[in-house]
Design a protein around this nucleic acid. Structure first.
Length: 472
RNA sequence: GGCGGGGUAGCCAAGUGGUAAGGUCGCGGUCUGCAAAACCGCUAUUCGCGGGUUCGAUUCCCGCCCCCGCCUCCA
C-alpha cells in the first residue's frame, strides 16, 4: 500500500508524493516551542507525532531533512525576561536547554536544524520578506508604525482553515488594534517597539521593532528548506492563524505553493479539556519523572493513540503504558534467550510483520500497528511455551523488532543489578535450596522494596527492574 | 454563528457493507512450595440516538444529541 496522509488543506487522505520522488529526499518543517517556560507534555505529544512521522518515512527509505524553529522572542518571552530582570537571551536559554533535555528523555530525534527567531540571519530574512510583501501591496505600515499583512489582497487566505473571512468573530482573547489595521484579520509582520519591549528590538526600514510570530516560520522555512516544502506539521491550534499566515506570507513572496502536505496533531486533554498553560492543567516532563515514570513510558503513552484523535491524559493511561512495555520487555528477553544469544542481523525476513509497516503507511495508524505487534508477541510466546520456536526464528523476530523499533524507539534500558540486590538474591538462592520458603519469601519482599522483581524459573531466579509510580 | 476532531467493553483503542483487532484492568484455569511471567478461558447479541437504503448497516445516506478544539497568544 502506498503511503498516505490526511492533508489538512484538502481535508482528505492523500497519497504521499514528495516533490522529488526520484531523490527520495523530503523536507519537513515543524513548529517548535516558544521558550518562555518549560514545555508541557501536550506540546510533546505533537513532537512525538512528528518523530513518528520522520522515523516511519526513514524506514520507508526517505532521507528526511527536518527543521524545527525555536521562538525566542514574543510577548511572553519579553515579559518573562523583564519580570526576571535578566536579558532576553539569558531568560530563554534556560528553557531552550530544558527543551533539549526533554526531547532527549522522550527519545525524540533531533531536527537537523533548530533555527532561533532572534538569529540575525533570520531577522534579515524576515525584513527582506516583509519588504517584498509591502512592495507587492500585500502589506502596509499602519499608524501605530507596525507592519501588517493585508489579508484581503491574498485571495487564498482562509483556505487552510476553511474560514470565511467575513465570518471571523473575535474571541476576545487577544486585544485588537482595530483602529490601526485595515481589516480586523490583518496580522502583524513587524511589531513597532513600545516601552514594554525594553531593550529588545531590531532596526528596520519601518523603525525599531521586532518580528511578528508568523513571519519567523516563513523566513526560517524558506531560508533553510527553499520555497517549497513537502510536509509541514504542528498542533491543530496552529492551523489558524499561524499556518494560514505562513501560507500567505511565503506564497506572497515566492509566488509558489508553500507546502504540499499539512499534517496536524490533535490535542492532549486532561480531564476532557485541552492541556494548556493558560488553563493551568498541565504537566511537564519533570512532573511525570518525579512520579516515577520513565521517558519511554511517557513516550509510549503519548504515542499510542492516532495523532488526529484527541488523547486524554490519565494516570491509568500511564500505568497501562508501563504494563504494555513490560510485556514487550519480557518478550524480547525470552526471544534473546531462545535465539541462544547468537544475534545474526542478516537473518531478516522482510515478509514478516508487513502489517505493522502497512498500518503506519495508512496515515500513521499506530494503534493498528501496535495491535499487530502484540498479536505477534502472543503468538511467539505461545510457540516458546511449547518449545516450538527455534533459535533461527527467534533471531528473525528479534531482527524484525530491531527494524520496527527504529520507528518506535521503545526498547528498555538494561539496569545494572545493584550489588545489594545481587547479595539478597544469593541469600534467597541458598534459602530456596534448603526449602526455607519463609526466608525465601521475605528476601523476595526485600528485593522488591529495592525496586527489583524476582521470579523463579526452571533456570533459577530471574531479576527484573520494576518501577513503581509514586501514586498519582 | 462558522469551521474541524471525537462518541466502539470498567478504562484506552483498531476496524469493515456480511456480523466486533489489540492493550490495560478484573475473574477462573495451566504452571509454581507460594508467587511472578507466559499461555488458555471468561468479560460489547453490540458500536451516541432516531429514521432510511440494503438480503444484511457499527460501516453508506438523512436528521438529531453529547464532548473537545479553532475563529488572530497556543503543540
Amino acid at each position: 500500500m502506498a503511503l498516505r496522509f490526511f492533508n489538512t488543506y484538502s481535508r482528505q487522505l492523500e497519497e504521499f508524493r514528495p516533490r522529488d520522488p526520484a531523490a527520495h529526499n523530503i523536507d519537513i518543517y515543524t513548529c517548535g516551542p516558544t521558550v518562555y517556560s518549560r514545555a508541557h507534555i501536550g506540546n510533546f505529544r505533537a513532537y512525538i507525532f512528528e518523530d513518528l512521522l520522520q522515523r516511519h518515512l526513514e524506514l520507508r527509505g526517505y532521507k528526511v531533512h527536518r527543521v524545527m524553529n525555536i521562538t525566542d522572542v514574543d510577548d511572553k518571552t519579553i515579559r518573562g525576561a523583564r519580570e526576571a530582570g535578566v536579558p532576553l537571551s539569558k531568560f530563554t536559554a534556560q528553557f531552550k536547554q530544558a527543551f533539549f533535555e526533554d526531547i532527549e528523555t522522550l527519545r525524540i530525534k533531533r531536527a537537523d536544524e533548530f533555527p532561533a527567531a532572534t538569529d540575525r540571519h533570520y531577522i534579515d530574512k524576515m525584513i527582506e520578506m516583509i519588504s517584498m510583501l509591502i512592495f507587492r501591496g500585500l502589506a502596509y505600515q499602519a499608524e501605530d508604525k507596525s507592519v501588517y499583512f493585508r489579508i484581503n489582497k491574498f485571495s487564498d487566505y482562509g483556505k487552510l482553515a476553511h474560514f470565511d473571512l467575513t465570518q471571523l468573530q473575535s474571541t476576545g482573547r487577544v486585544k485588537h488594534d482595530e483602529y490601526d489595521k485595515e481589516h480586523i484579520g490583518d496580522f502583524a509582520l513587524w511589531k513597532a517597539w513600545d516601552e514594554e519591549d525594553g531593550n529588545v528590538g531590531w532596526e528596520s526600514p519601518w523603525g525599531r521593532g521586532r518580528p511578528g510570530w508568523h513571519i519567523e516560520c516563513s523566513a526560517m522555512a524558506t531560508a533553510l528548506l527553499g520555497d517549497q516544502i513537502d510536509i509541514h506539521c504542528g498542533g491543530v491550534d496552529n492551523i489558524f492563524p499561524h499556518h494560514e499566515a505562513e501560507i500567505a506570507q511565503s506564497e506572497g513572496v515566492t509566488g509558489k505553493k508553500f507546502v504540499r502536505y499539512w499534517l496536524h496533531c490533535a490535542h492532549l486533554l486532561v480531564d476532557g479539556q485541552k492541556m494548556s498553560k493558560s488553563l493551568g492543567n498541565f504537566y511537564t516532563l519533570p512532573d511525570l519523572l518525579e512520579k516515577g515514570y520513565s521517558g519511554r513510558e511517557i513516550r509510549y503513552a503519548l504515542m499510542r493513540v492516532h495523532y488526529r484523535a484527541p488523547l486524554n491524559f490519565t494516570w491509568e493511561g500511564m500505568d497501562e503504558a508501563r504494563q504494555a512495555l513490560a510485556r514487550i520487555d519480557e518478550w524480547l528477553a525470552r526471544l534473546l534467550e531462545t535465539s541462544g544469544d547468537k544475534i545474526d542481523d542478516k537473518n531478516v525476513d522482510i515478509e514478516l510483520g508487513q502489517q505493522f509497516e502497512e498500518a503506519l503507511d495508512d496515515d500513521l495508524n499506530i494503534s493498528a500497528a501496535l495491535g499487530f505487534l502484540f498479536e505477534s508477541i502472543r503468538e511467539t510466546n505461545r510457540a516458546m511455551d511449547r518449545n516450538e520456536l527455534d533459535a533461527a526464528s527467534a533471531n528473525t523476530w528479534l531482527n524484525w523488532w530491531k527494524r520496527i523499533n527504529s520507528v518506535l524507539d521503545l526498547e528498555g534500558e538494561t539496569d545494572e543489578l545493584p550489588a545489594a540486590v545481587a547479595q539478597l538474591a544469593d541469600e534467597r538462592e541458598r534459602a530456596r535450596l534448603a526449602k526455607k520458603w519463609k526466608t525465601s519469601d521475605e528476601l523476595r519482599d526485600r528485593i522488591a522494596a529495592l525496586g527489583w522483581e524476582v521470579r523463579d524459573t526452571k533456570d533459577g531466579q530471574k531479576l527484573t527492574r520494576r518501577r513503581e509510580a509514586q501514586s498519582g
